[in-house]
Design a protein around this nucleic acid. Sequence first.
DNA 1: CTACAAGTTCAAGTAAACTTGAAATCAAGG
DNA 2: CCTTGATTTCAAGTTTACTTGAACTTGTAG
Lengths: 151, 151
Amino acid sequence: METTLTINQLSRRSGVAASALRYYEERGLIQSERRGSGHRRFTRATLRRLAFIVFAQRLGMSLAEIRSELEKLPTDHVPKGADWSLLSGPWSARIDERIAELERLKTGLAQCISCGCLSLEYCRLVNPHDKAGALGPGPHYWLGDQSSTDD
Amino acid sequence: METTLTINQLSRRSGVAASALRYYEERGLIQSERRGSGHRRFTRATLRRLAFIVFAQRLGMSLAEIRSELEKLPTDHVPKGADWSLLSGPWSARIDERIAELERLKTGLAQCISCGCLSLEYCRLVNPHDKAGALGPGPHYWLGDQSSTDD
DNA sequence: CTACAAGTTCAAGTAAACTTGAAATCAAGG
DNA sequence: CCTTGATTTCAAGTTTACTTGAACTTGTAG
């Protein structure tokens, strides 16, 4: 009984397309052993790694960021519970921040935008402190222009 | 006193780059009147529209989706509080779903990934019901493969 | 009137995250 | 051995959301 997975097996089990898996390997997010033929073989541990990758993406992280997170895992043994905890621990804070922003957005939709009583220049509902923002190449943030007060 | 704004005034007040504003206009998200010279003039109402656009983007919506939301606004008068409420109302639910997903992710990071006791194939922490997903062209979701139970 | 800042269009470039297609090789069943 | 399906690499294409640059026209202050 083979304990390793082919690329299509891994794809089926993870829900991540084979082409994406090759891309992830190329970008250094996952690894594979090669058979003499050149065919990839993945260990089952890769499944957990993939779960982490998919989760992190849902949090709005780029593959580059995810990669550097994954590099914090030990390489001398297959990462286990405690190893993953080290990574995921600080993430709770990250998630909480994002949740807080969503709460602000929710309030903002109800108040800032709807009622119109609030001047948009002073609106700091969107990501007020965190400049790093994570939702890809979107527009820039609503930061307000301190010097203009004529509206 | 002019009540309309030039593209750079609008840019400064909204924090959205002028090039992005032209792009939004091209894509039908905002409108402008043109002077004889061809120069754009935006009404102040565009500021609120932009706030909505930026907020919606932070929620992970694409410009196409945002555009179709904006098309629900009345065109016979400048949208006011009640009009915006009609749009933003249903969004609270959307935001709540997203928050709920983040809560699941938080739990998932602690349990599903870290402890490893949970087989990834059964993990539905990520966006279990909502197929529309909104974080851009990411990978596909972790949906689990009902038929494979050999792990 | 003359600068110079601000505005215009249009084409092309960028970045991320993949997908697709071509051409070739590998593995497994009959 | 033959065929079929799985894999491989590599280059090129796709989508979203913009940005940048070139070439040119307007608006405004002095």
